[in-house]
Amino acid sequence: MTQLALVIDLNVCVGCHACVTSCKQWNTSGWAGPLVDKNPYDAEPTGTFFNRVQTFEVGTFPLTETVHFPKSCLHCEDPPCVPVCPTGASYKRPDNGVVLVDYDKCIGCKYCSWACPYGAREIDEQQRVMKKCTLCIDRIIDLALPERERKPACVLACPTSARLFGDVHDPNSEVSVAIRERGGYQLMPEWGTRPSNHYLPRRRTALHINEDELVRADNPLRREDLTTYTGEEALDDVAW
């Protein structure tokens, strides 16, 4: 069975929010839209977004890491948001594992959002139905799109290619290889939700220089006259 998902590489994510607004623009005019905004030009502007980029600080100065952390629906393999839905509006597609909401069935009871430990669902306060990342279902299965573009908007936008997209059940897919080789992990594994989206951790490249690498025979300083003879007496001048 196919399970489509995103793999997010925290090693290169710079927190630019490209995935946030590209998602918004694709989806607001698409199948999942509109994604409304409240107080768009006033105090406390707020709106429906499927993807948010957050920032965490790890450690204390000067040993601080700043972690940019994008998060959208993780398309759990065992999605707790689905069984709680009283209407069946929330469902997981059997063919590709994408978790979706059918807006025509949703009654906006928000119960599914309580049942998502990741805070990945956002109600559309104007349409009054629950929304969330669709994994850009209307792109990834649109065969009219050229193959290159049959990917989520956020993935195509991401300037650092920190967002990989593919089938995590196919052991040879780019995402599975990345998870395997780069220590990909799931969020809050303690709940047994088995998120399909994975995160790749930071890696650090260090350089070790040995003392002997600093002094070498070809040191260019040896090609200069480092001392100049200005006529003063030396051992050479003493003859026995």
Binding site: T55, V58, E65
Partner: peptide, 23 residues
């Protein structure tokens, strides 16, 4: 466990929206 970083001092600084959200 939420972000998968093992360190005793992890503090959130930004949630990506300053005007609040459904969450």
């Amino acid at each position: 466990s939420a972000i998968g970083v093992r360190h005793s001092a992890v503090v959130q600084k930004a949630q990506g929206a300053t005007g609040g959200s459904f969450n």
